[in-house]
Simulated assay, not measured.
Amino acid sequence: MQYSNSGGNILAASELLDSILTRFQRGAVISELESEFGLKRDHLFYLRNINSKAIQSLALMVNARSAVTLNVDVEKLNLLLSSCVNANNADVNALLRNVDANFNGLHAIEYTIANQYIDLIYSELDLLLDASKQVKFNAPPKTLSLLSGLTGLKKSIVPFVMINKGVFTFDIDLTAFTFALRAFDAKYSQVNEVISLIKMGADFDFVKTYNGYCDVSIQYFKNLRKIFDIQTFSTEKLAVKKKLDIYESFNGSLKSEGTYKKAVIQAHIACNVPIEIVVKVIKKFETEIELDDEILESQLDELHRLLP
């Protein structure tokens, strides 16, 4: 959650995505979420099947287009904050008992969003301590004033009260959201191919040359190898028969699959060895064949020279 560059909106793509995925995990169906969030069925089908590791990247692309913003009913929020500020100990204890009775793990994502919003406002209060800075406050002045009067337990109950009274909702620009999803899907397909090759044990040259979509930096390659615990592979301890099997599998696949990349991947699958090993074995055999051809050609030349 963050303010837009203009400061006029609170960008909340990550919070929306987390809310939708949480609702799916609770057993919600597409039709329920259509009416709850105002998204189209195609959007929700796509999000239901998205890989969890891609959520943050998608959120960044959605936020870049300001497609999802958090709409806060400031008037309602200020009334709630005013009640919390003026609450006595008995009121606070009553609210805490209500929280204990009515809130559970099912409200975790809603609580997180409300708490993040409060933290966002409090971060502006912190700026009041530095008089030398030129500060532009994005939060409503009345809200800032009321929050400055909250401490301890009173502050801790604010997110629960916000959830209970329905203070915030999501505003979604469907056109911008659709564009972001399409752009992300294209980018994700590219990166996913790179990740797939790395997980199959391909070396840097193979990944860079045959991922088919995008440029890959050596640092990115090294980082992903560490993440997936992929080692550098050697053919030294590989049995001769295994090497022959790999090369035969590659040649057989090359005839049927038609491309070098597909044949290498097929040999990787068939022989259960990393792509890096497959490539090294192929290069070794082809080098030896070329060397044998050169030796044979040299011997024939010498024979022709000696013969009358």
Rank of each mutant, 00 (worst) to 15 (best):
Q2H: 14
A28K: 07
A28E: 08
S31E: 14
E34P: 00
N51W: 07
I55Q: 05
I55L: 11
N63T: 04
A64H: 12
R65M: 04
V68L: 02
E75L: 11
V92C: 04
N93H: 07
A94T: 10
L96W: 04
N102M: 08
L106T: 11
I113E: 04
Y117K: 04
L120V: 06
Y122F: 11
S123I: 06
S123M: 08
L125I: 09
L127D: 08
L127V: 05
V135Y: 12
N138H: 15
K142C: 11
S148D: 14
S156M: 14
S156W: 08
I157N: 01
G166Y: 07
F168L: 08
T169A: 09
D173Y: 01
A180S: 03
L181M: 03
R182W: 05
N192R: 08
V194C: 00
K199C: 01
G201I: 00
A202S: 10
D203M: 02
F206W: 02
T209A: 06
D215H: 13
I218N: 06
I218T: 07
R225H: 05
K237D: 13
L238Y: 02
A239P: 11
L244T: 12
L244R: 10
E248V: 09
L254I: 02
S256T: 12
A263P: 00
Q266D: 07
K283W: 02
K283L: 07
K283Y: 06
K284C: 03
E290R: 15
R305L: 12
L306A: 12
